[in-house]
Design a protein around this nucleic acid. Structure first.
Lengths: 225, 225, 225, 225
DNA sequence: AATGAATGAGGATTCATTCAT
DNA sequence: TATGAATGAATCCTCATTCAT
């Protein structure tokens, strides 16, 4: 966090870059992407506006980089957490889902950024940036899939990736549903609205568990019974 | 479509209102919400900009109304289609999922509007509008849940609504993943990117089927074995 | 100048358009094009910034329109003034040059705008705008050439247009030389700098007269001698 | 072009300075002054941005220095070329004009820089710089005028300088007219636009010849007759 | 002398919404 | 009810210049 006035060495520059990403991510926790201005990011970094553009070519690239970081960290953490999971037991799907949901709740920034990916971030970048991002994603998804298969041994080959893709979709969808605008939140607070309320972690855990159960072969279940 | 110059009677007004919604919805099929201007909607309706505001208080309300329409129609259609489904068979989840996915693909507009709901449409509306929308949604979800239970008899009480909520999340997430920006689409076209490509209908059907299977009691499965 | 709050009729709109052009032109007399902001033009028109864009699609188009107006008016005035000139006399070139130079000095705005034409105004316009401008110019140049031939009967066919084109070049060049930046003006005020000082009207008259003399056939001169 | 890493000796510094000017001038042949950034000049010099400012105090001074160089060289070359001209013949003006026009076409950079002089370069310099430039110009114009008088013996005293000043104006004006923006060029390519097209060398030669003829005393002509 | 990270002022343009007619 | 002229807030990015190293 302590970056010299002028980041001359590569490691200083990397630190400053990270500092900017941290500020941007934190800001995203407080307001919508569209309400965040580059001026504000700069101000909170104690930097000039122009300086941001030394590190990122556009607002989109800045937040895409933030997502990239978050994603990489999450995948790494997830890999460890899944490895620590005793696998193969009957409640593997539940334990898997709980682990994943927990890991995502702990990374609120990631779930803030994820819905922006297709809607905003990928709309104004060049092919190289897009390619670099997707390449990284591909690699991480590959690693992640391996971890998934470890935690869910019965899963058919190829379904590890599929689980992650479906997880992505669920996160994006549920995150939006779980974070209504204030006015809407007020409406949803009414008693009869209970069925429409979504609690992110709980719902993610539940739906992911169900989805995974549904993807596992029946035999596993039968043999238990 | 043929509306009188001045819509004096209530039915004329309703017709004009619907005409506006149709135009707006069609436009959304062609470009992003943010790229659509009220001026363009007005032009394509052969109306003046100000006139739109006689029917809708804001851009958000206009598209929220469009969503409301689409949603209502979809729920109605879904109800019928699910009722027509022979229920209780072993492949109920698959047939259910296929029916649902098909019904959504046929209503592209709905799946265009749905991701906007929390991100945009609910951001600039007043409590009354929000309440009216949620009330309508609650009612439709209730009806829909009944239809779901008919198609999936084994489903636990309360899980009908849950299926619909999770479906909502999946649609939002998958729709975005399935419609990448042109630049990104180009990158995804590379052979090695295959795992990251999402085909909406197929993926929705697959994940919904899995999710539903996972929500059904094990007994169903056992009885098959 | 008195335009209603809302210009609803075409003639009101034309009046407002003209009012904007007048303000813009006046401003150009005081500062460089690049120092003029659309905000300032709007402010001096007592209009909102956005309103300018209802009348002109860009800053360039605004000033191009101003030039168009000035040019048209000048050509018309010049036509009359040249027609009033007794032609054919031995000092026709001098009288022609004096008339032209005078007419341009009286239209300082035109000579302010002219140097911008190729440097700035034509840099950011679309083909239609460019075509419309050039078409108008072509027409006016045609009319102007006729007037030139009336004032200078000895001129070879085709040289009327040529005189106007060369005049254009002279005006652009001399106008810049005659209006140095303050710092430069101070330097040029030193006695020894006298040869580098340019007085616009005098120099334009002199060079135009010489140029025209040189374009007239020698016989005219010989026969006089 | 091969300059040491650190220019310690004065001659090294002069060489580096010249290298920068060369790069800047070459760049100007390819794009508009405003589109050229100091960063680009530096990059093409394989120097850091800051280094440019060790040699020139501002972008304007840099290009002014480039103009100064070009101008000096041109005046020198012109002096020689005019001296080589057999003078006093009947077609002296034509030969003079052709020589001048040719010398300018061969120095495209000079004609690129000249229109910038009053519009841009002299706008952001201090009095000393301005004085130095004008002093140099004065000296060169004096020498040039002598050469002009040699080539055009009939010219009245003082008209040598005048020819050069008018030449300056013509070059600035014609150069702009001869280099339209791409969009405009397209419009001018239409057949009916022929009268508005300007070919630099041809038009400069023609107008300069006419101007000079018009500045020469009638006797010259009479003696021919 | 050379570097290059940091600065920060500067400006055109869009568009949802209003309101006079 | 319909119009469409007027509004004006809102914001990203560039780039000449500086200065710490």
């Amino acid at each position: 966090m302590a970056v010299k006035q002028r980041a001359r060495k590569d490691e200083d520059k990397a630190a400053r870059r990270r500092a900017i990403l941290t500020v941007a991510a934190r800001l995203l926790g407080r307001k919508q992407y569209h309400r965040i201005t580059m001026a504000e990011v700069a101000r909170r970094c104690h930097l000039a506006k122009g300086t941001l553009y030394l590190y990122f070519r556009s607002k989109e690239e800045l937040f895409l980089a933030a997502l990239e970081d978050e994603l990489a960290q999450w995948f790494d953490a997830l890999g460890e957490q899944l490895a620590a999971l005793a696998s193969g037991s009957a409640d593997a799907p539940e334990r898997f889902a709980a682990t994943v949901a927990r890991s995502l709740v702990e990374r609120e920034t990631l779930t803030d950024l994820l819905p922006l990916l297709h809607t905003v971030l990928e709309q104004n970048i060049d092919e190289d940036t897009a390619a670099a991002f997707k390449q990284m994603l591909l690699r991480k998804v590959g690693e992640g899939a391996t971890a998934v298969h470890l935690a869910l041994p019965g899963l058919a080959p190829g379904d590890g990736v599929r689980v992650l893709m479906r997880l992505h979709a669920l996160v994006v969808g549920l995150r939006q549903m779980a974070d209504p605008a204030p006015v809407v939140a007020q409406v949803l607070a009414r008693p009869q609205m209970e069925p429409l309320r979504v609690e992110f972690e709980e719902e993610l855990r539940g739906s992911l568990a169900a989805m995974v159960r549904g993807m596992l072969p029946l035999q596993v279940v039968s043999s238990v019974a």
